[in-house]
Design a protein around this nucleic acid. Structure first.
Lengths: 284, 284
DNA sequence: GCTAGAGTGAAACAACCGTTTCATCGCGTG
DNA sequence: CACGCGATGAAACGGTTGTTTCACTCTAGC
């Protein structure tokens, strides 16, 4: 990836037009591999001269040399996959490649383990604004729980991550009680307070879905629906990549279900960002 | 493989020279994908006219059309896995299966995109207790950032997620300054405060690694090392599954590096859990 | 408000490309 | 041996390409 490296090094001296060229060809490298200066210029909506200047600025002699460089990168990519894999794990499998395999497998087996229709019921509940959503999580998965809450919150009101001190949690559970939808998240070596809290909520009639490591988990037995995640890791901690992939599925399906309802919310959020001028595309 | 098919169909009407052209371009399809008539002619040791006649004989209008055909074949192979999956929406493919494909591809391409040795330097820094680690994240990835901080914190002291109000952030950055290691996390539509904070830290000599969506991102240009994540999604929000997989790789590698140093910490944490009787295996 | 300078695209230009033409070669047939 | 004919490459020919020039626009700084 010679081009990417050069782009990175000189990203700060690029003009707006040149930056657009860079983004265009990063998003579509075939354009420069097969195309002419005019093709790239049109796609990036700049003049042909600017494209050539861009190539020179990156340290090439001209467009032709830039194109040759991209073609070299590309030829490597279209070598048969088997060959590439072979010389990647030359001899000993590294920690990095094992990690990649493990995480990819986590995603696959977590999502494959979903029993058809099982997610359907959950999405129905999560899409219904009448039921406030409470998320309970063990410390180990608190980050992905937050991630889930943050996304779901943008699609519907009444989503909350329950944490803080136990008094607060008990009070909240007592208040929302019967109509609450619980999403409970914890893996083996379950946290006692979490089980207690879930028990309390169940006793008050709340509807619960468990995301856990095992069908025999105490969480699973207390929940209406249970999802089993794969949390294998090449390191000392459980990986929550699979968990996040599962939670994202819920988000994606809720978004599809609530399409119109969500748009209003998303527009409001977007408008607020714009009003505050808090976001930027290029840092300038 | 349109070309192969045409070649097989008309193999019997090819002249010796034409046959040699066919063998040449089958053995090296990049030649015709990227090269000129003259290139192919030279490689097959024939004249340029023969190459053109060859293309016509296969049913193309001329060399240009033959080339276009090969390029189409080739571009299918080299488009990023995520993209290919995206428009593979073949009829009745469900949202759930597409989501599974997309998330698995996110993990794979995020981890495949790591330039060898690039992670090495980062892990060196993250493993060194002398450098406090500060994590900065946009709201959209705050959950995975927390997840990362929580895991890394168990392996070494001095890890902090920087959030809260801007005054607090500026003060913290000013205090730790030169010896800090920054991990900055944000995707397109970058948050302005984050860029500002990173600029401030860089000015004070901090060492930074960026995790972002693009080599041209303002974060990448300010960082010592930049990692590009795939965040494709079947829904409206970016997926941070790939991001989490990348951060987990850092955690796994830091754990391997610090093996002995980390054990003491993990034992202490474990002891505290046991003392508080906060964990259970079965809920009883 | 004016100016210097950077940024940009239209147009001119020379080089190269794909295509076509045409003379030559090789070879079987009358 | 002459002849016809398919095969072939050198060279000519438009067309297109990458490159360069140049005039215009926009903006920062005085």
């Amino acid at each position: 990836m010679d081009l990417e490296q050069r782009l990175r090094e000189r990203a700060d001296v690029l003009t707006p037009s040149e930056r657009r060229i860079g983004e265009t060809i990063l998003a579509n490298s075939q354009l420069v591999a097969f195309g002419t200066v005019a093709d790239v210029a049109e796609a990036a909506r700049v003049g042909t001269a600017t494209v050539v200047r861009f190539a020179v600025k990156l340290g090439f002699d001209g467009y032709s040399q830039l194109q040759a460089s991209v073609q070299r990168d590309v030829s490597g990519q279209l070598r048969p996959a088997v060959e590439r894999i072979r010389d990647q794990r030359s001899g000993d499998e590294t920690l990095a490649t094992r990690h990649a395999d493990v995480e990819a497998a986590n995603v696959r087996s977590t999502l494959d383990a979903i029993r058809v229709g099982d997610d359907r019921a959950v999405v129905d509940r999560l899409s219904d604004e009448r039921f406030p959503v409470l998320v309970l999580s063990g410390v180990a998965s608190r980050g992905v729980a937050m991630q889930f809450v943050g996304d779901l919150e943008q699609l519907r009101p009444g989503v909350r991550l329950l944490d803080g001190n136990q008094v607060d949690i008990v009070r909240t559970l007592a208040l929302v009680g019967a109509e609450a939808t619980l999403v409970v998240l914890d893996l083996r070596r379950y946290e006692r307070w979490l089980i207690d809290a879930m028990e309390l909520a169940r006793a008050r009639g709340a509807w619960a879905v468990a995301v856990t490591d095992n069908v025999l988990s105490p969480l699973a037995s207390m929940a209406e629906h249970a999802f089993v995640v794969s949390a294998a890791s090449a390191g000392p901690f459980d990986s929550h990549v699979g968990t996040l992939a599962l939670l994202n599925l819920f988000v994606v399906e809720v978004a599809a279900r609530r399409r119109d309802g969500a748009v209003t919310r998303l527009d409001a959020i977007e408008a607020a960002w714009v009003a505050a001028d808090a976001l930027t595309d290029d840092g300038k």
